[in-house]
Amino acid sequence: MATVTAPAPGRRRRTPLARREARWAYLFLAPWIIGFLIFYAGPMVASLWLSFTEYDVINPPEYTGLDNYRELMSDPAVARSLGNTVYYTALHVPLVMLISLGLALLLKRVGRLQGFFRTVFYLPVMTPAVAVGILFLLLLNTQDGLINRALGLVGIAGPSWTTDPHWVMPGIILMSLWSLGSTVIIYLAALQNVPRDLYEAAAIDGAGAWARFRSVTLPMISGALFFTLIVNTIASLQMFTEVYTMYFGNRETQNSFNSDAASFYVIHLFQEAFQFLHMGFASAMAWLLFVIILVITLVQVKLSNRFVYYEGEDQ
């Protein structure tokens, strides 16, 4: 008696059409994959090797084992810059998300002028980061800056934003809010995709504005919230250009300011690599940052399983 064996699950033969489609897919992906391998993966592997060496760019690297990582753990400048970066991230990310969400909710109600305001909110994102740094140096000027002048109008003596170590970071966070336009746009798009009938059903059930926001809006835009949480966290941990412009712009001006309070991790990495020629140590710093970002992102992804709703997924 002949027996019929069912194909093993997961090993179903693909149709010629599916195979052809897969080939085309790989072909279209090829430029990105090649670019990734050459410009990211290759250099990353090489820099991993360099992180175990003493390397000054000019002379051949010398293998030093874990020396760079040991130094990394004991270097107070690294700890200080990492602390500053984490402090910035912890304040910047929630603030950007909250303010952006508030602005997006307001924009949603604007009606016909929404396109205009959407453009206005996005324009600051187009401003070059160097220009933003310089602009905020002027705005944050203790005596004549617009911000302290505005505070003065309501009887508040503004702080020394750029020189008082306690106020340097709040000043930088204030500056960072300048470019939250892209987050606003993402939230606005997500808000506009929330089905109206869900609100209507909730209203019929007696839900008030807050209950509708909490039980309908937030779950429905949780995917966008999660995306911006990840993206903004990574960007914050890599903060460089604006702060470098403000506090470390060139050899003559960089040290005219309080550099300890404004020392971000990537800025310190850049100085170690290009000013002090410690490329091996800088490579170790880069890998430490990579691991930190990876761990934070994995934690966020893990948490997202509980809090994020993706349209079309099984409930």
């Binding site: 410009f39 250099p43 990353m44 090489a46 820099s47 051949p60 490579s283 880069a286 990579f290």
Partner: peptide, 20 residues
């Protein structure tokens, strides 16, 4: 280490931090 590898490695520091 070859010159090409060194140059590649050098670029890697910033590839990790997404800085060109």
């Amino acid at each position: 280490m070859s010159r090409i590898l060194r140059a590649t490695a050098f670029a890697g520091v910033f590839a990790l931090t997404l800085t060109g």
